[in-house]
């Protein structure tokens, strides 16, 4: 009896393409196979390997919320061979998807707490999944705050959703761009993410912080959160080590005893402190 081939992707049809910012696109993907569509399920925080047939696979998070059924979304920046090929695709084209892989954000544990999401640049997609998930389960949580920064206004992704979030009464959105990155009609803040977080007057009391961004932003934001009194167990992030298999075999994402593809990508700062800083 032959076992299942764990490297075989689902075939997905591109249902919608959104241009988010220069070289950044969001795909909405629908399963070609109805049976797969019915049985597929994932939790927020998980990721997948997306194939451009002819070029290979690339790893990104699932950027949509599991509460939105029938499709998944991914957002990617064109940086390499596979993402360049994906960027050339059009609506109706077929791509591959393997997943969902990895661990999840523990939403059950966050019930009754305040949530602070802090994201920088292209790192909003993993948080977008969990933000929508939390908004769709709004009564589980107390205050929800989102801080999102990018270098320039043009680099902000999900602009339509940012507008929607800014208008929602049940959450607070703070957007910021780096000094010099503002446009004349920019109404958000100007400044780097860490000081913006510091000035928000957040309370660490009964609050979890979910941080995702470029390494430098994370590096400078963590001390701010610790200064505000967030214990390492209440700070979550998601790692983006290079991966090939996604199923704990190929060794590429191995960091300490952890396989980011299996034990991650979601880690608390307390967990990260136990790992060598090889991410």
């Amino acid at each position: 009896m032959s076992e299942k081939n764990i490297y075989l992707p689902y075939l997905m049809r591109i249902a919608e393409i959104t241009e988010e910012s220069p070289a950044v696109k969001t795909f909405r993907l629908e399963f070609v196979d109805d049976v797969a569509a019915q049985s597929f399920d994932f939790k927020t925080g998980q990721f997948g390997l997306y194939s451009a047939f002819g070029e290979g696979e690339s790893t990104f998070c699932i950027a949509s919320s599991p509460t939105r059924k029938g499709y998944i979304e991914c957002t990617f920046r064109e940086v390499g061979r596979v993402t360049a090929a994906l960027a050339d695709k059009e609506v109706g084209d077929i791509v591959g998807f393997r997943g969902p892989y990895g661990n999840v954000f523990p939403l059950e544990d966050w019930k009754g707490k305040n949530l602070v999401f802090i994201a920088g640049g292209i790192a909003l997609p993993p948080l977008r999944s969990v933000i929508w998930n939390c908004l769709d389960l709004r009564d589980w949580f107390k205050d929800i705050t989102v801080v999102y920064g990018a270098r320039r206004v043009a680099d902000l992704v999900y602009k339509r959703e940012l507008k929607e979030w800014s208008e929602r009464p049940d959450m607070k959105l703070v957007t910021t761009v780096d000094p010099g990155g503002e446009t004349p009609d920019w109404t958000g803040k100007v400044g780097f993410v860490p000081p913006v977080v510091e000035q928000l007057g957040l309370s660490a009391e009964n609050t979890v912080a979910i941080v995702c961004g470029p390494p430098i932003m994370i590096k400078l934001t963590l001390p701010v959160l610790q200064k505000l009194g967030f214990p390492p167990e209440a700070i979550f992030t998601t790692l983006e080590n290079r991966m090939k298999c996604g199923v704990g075999k190929c060794g590429r994402c191995n960091t300490g005893k952890s396989y980011v593809c299996k034990d991650g990508p979601v880690y608390t700062l307390a967990e990260l402190n136990q790992l060598p800083a090889e991410y």
Partner: peptide
């Protein structure tokens, strides 16, 4: 440790598993 590589032309292709090494700077 292994790598997964694509070899294809516009009409067909295959995905290959190839030995890899954590000693290569490209690995991570």
């Amino acid at each position: 440790c292994f790598d997964i590589q694509e070899e294809a032309d516009p009409k067909q292709g295959e995905r290959l598993r190839c030995w890899d090494s954590c000693g290569f700077h490209m690995f991570t």
